[in-house]
Deep mutational scan, measured.
Amino acid sequence: CETCDRYISGRVLEAGGKHYHPTCARCVRCHQMFTEGEEMYLTGSEVWHPICKQAAR
């Protein structure tokens, strides 16, 4: 997992080739988790909900 550096077994979320436990992938702006299939916007090592990234501009 990109966030906690632990092995992932079971469900995995992926953004930009990086992998996360579903509970570790959180938006840097709103701190909410991502749901399965939800779009993730990756900037460097930061993961955003698209609407949060747009609002931060």
Rank of each mutant, 00 (worst) to 15 (best):
C1E: 15
C1W: 01
C1D: 14
C1V: 01
C1L: 02
E2A: 10
E2Y: 15
E2L: 06
E2M: 15
E2N: 15
E2H: 08
E2G: 11
E2I: 15
T3M: 08
T3W: 00
T3G: 07
T3D: 08
T3A: 03
T3I: 15
C4F: 00
C4W: 00
C4L: 00
C4K: 02
C4E: 01
C4Y: 00
D5Y: 15
D5C: 10
D5L: 08
D5F: 05
D5Q: 13
D5A: 08
D5I: 02
D5M: 10
D5K: 14
D5G: 11
R6P: 00
R6M: 07
R6F: 00
R6V: 02
R6C: 09
Y7V: 14
Y7E: 15
Y7S: 10
Y7F: 02
Y7A: 13
Y7L: 12
Y7C: 03
Y7M: 14
Y7D: 13
Y7Q: 13
I8T: 03
I8N: 02
I8S: 01
I8W: 00
I8V: 01
I8L: 01
I8E: 04
S9W: 03
S9E: 14
S9H: 05
S9G: 05
S9T: 13
G10R: 03
G10H: 02
G10P: 05
G10Q: 03
R11I: 03
R11M: 05
R11Q: 06
R11Y: 04
R11L: 06
R11T: 11
R11K: 15
V12L: 08
V12W: 05
V12S: 13
V12I: 12
V12A: 14
V12R: 10
V12K: 14
V12G: 14
L13D: 02
L13C: 09
L13N: 05
L13E: 03
L13K: 07
L13P: 02
E14R: 07
E14S: 12
E14A: 06
E14F: 07
E14C: 07
E14T: 10
E14G: 07
E14Y: 06
A15T: 15
A15P: 01
A15E: 04
A15N: 05
A15H: 13
A15V: 15
G16F: 02
G16Q: 13
G16E: 06
G16I: 00
G17N: 11
G17R: 03
G17L: 01
K18A: 05
K18P: 01
K18F: 02
K18M: 06
K18D: 02
K18W: 00
K18I: 02
H19F: 10
H19Y: 13
H19M: 14
H19L: 07
H19W: 06
H19K: 11
H19T: 11
H19N: 09
H19V: 06
Y20G: 04
Y20W: 08
Y20H: 01
Y20K: 03
Y20Q: 02
Y20C: 03
Y20F: 10
H21N: 03
H21G: 00
H21F: 00
H21D: 00
H21A: 01
H21P: 00
P22R: 05
P22S: 03
P22L: 11
P22H: 04
P22Y: 12
P22N: 05
T23Y: 04
T23L: 05
T23R: 09
T23G: 10
T23Q: 09
T23A: 11
T23E: 08
T23F: 03
T23D: 04
C24T: 01
C24I: 01
C24R: 02
C24W: 00
C24P: 00
C24K: 03
C24V: 00
C24G: 02
C24N: 02
C24Y: 00
A25Y: 14
A25G: 04
A25R: 14
A25V: 15
A25D: 04
A25T: 12
A25E: 00
R26S: 14
R26H: 09
R26Y: 07
R26T: 12
R26W: 04
R26F: 08
R26M: 10
R26D: 02
C27L: 02
C27M: 01
C27Q: 02
C27T: 05
C27Y: 01
C27P: 05
V28F: 14
V28D: 08
V28N: 14
V28W: 08
V28A: 12
R29P: 00
R29Q: 11
R29Y: 11
R29T: 11
R29V: 07
R29G: 10
R29W: 07
R29A: 13
R29L: 04
R29E: 12
C30S: 02
C30G: 01
C30P: 02
C30W: 00
C30R: 02
C30A: 01
H31M: 11
H31E: 09
H31I: 04
H31P: 01
H31G: 13
H31K: 13
Q32C: 08
Q32T: 10
Q32L: 12
Q32D: 12
M33K: 14
M33N: 14
M33H: 15
M33P: 12
M33L: 11
M33R: 15
M33T: 15
M33C: 13
F34C: 06
F34Y: 03
F34I: 06
F34T: 05
T35M: 06
T35S: 06
T35V: 10
T35P: 04
T35I: 07
T35K: 10
E36Y: 15
E36G: 13
E36A: 11
E36N: 08
E36C: 08
G37S: 14
G37H: 13
G37V: 09
G37R: 12
G37C: 08
E38A: 08
E38K: 05
E39R: 06
E39S: 07
E39Y: 03
E39V: 03
E39K: 06
E39H: 03
E39L: 02
E39C: 05
M40R: 11
M40N: 06
M40F: 07
M40C: 09
M40K: 14
M40E: 09
M40Q: 14
M40G: 04
Y41M: 13
Y41T: 15
Y41K: 14
Y41W: 07
Y41D: 15
Y41H: 15
Y41N: 11
Y41I: 11
Y41P: 05
L42W: 12
L42F: 15
L42D: 11
L42G: 14
L42H: 04
L42Q: 10
L42R: 09
L42C: 10
L42I: 10
T43N: 09
T43S: 12
G44E: 12
G44P: 07
G44Y: 04
G44A: 10
S45R: 06
S45W: 05
S45K: 04
S45G: 13
E46F: 05
E46M: 08
E46A: 06
E46V: 04
V47M: 10
V47D: 02
V47N: 11
V47W: 14
V47G: 03
V47C: 08
V47A: 08
W48F: 07
W48K: 13
W48M: 15
W48T: 13
H49D: 00
H49M: 00
H49L: 01
H49I: 01
P50V: 12
P50T: 13
P50C: 05
P50F: 08
P50M: 07
P50Y: 07
P50K: 08
I51R: 11
I51E: 12
I51K: 08
I51L: 09
I51V: 13
I51M: 10
C52W: 01
C52K: 07
C52L: 01
C52N: 05
C52M: 01
C52E: 02
K53V: 10
K53R: 10
K53P: 12
K53E: 12
Q54W: 05
Q54G: 09
Q54P: 12
Q54A: 11
Q54K: 13
Q54S: 11
Q54M: 11
A55Y: 11
A55D: 15
A55M: 10
A55C: 01
A55V: 10
A55E: 13
A56H: 13
A56K: 11
A56G: 09
A56R: 05
A56S: 12
A56E: 13
A56W: 04
A56F: 13
A56Y: 05
R57I: 15
R57T: 14
R57N: 12
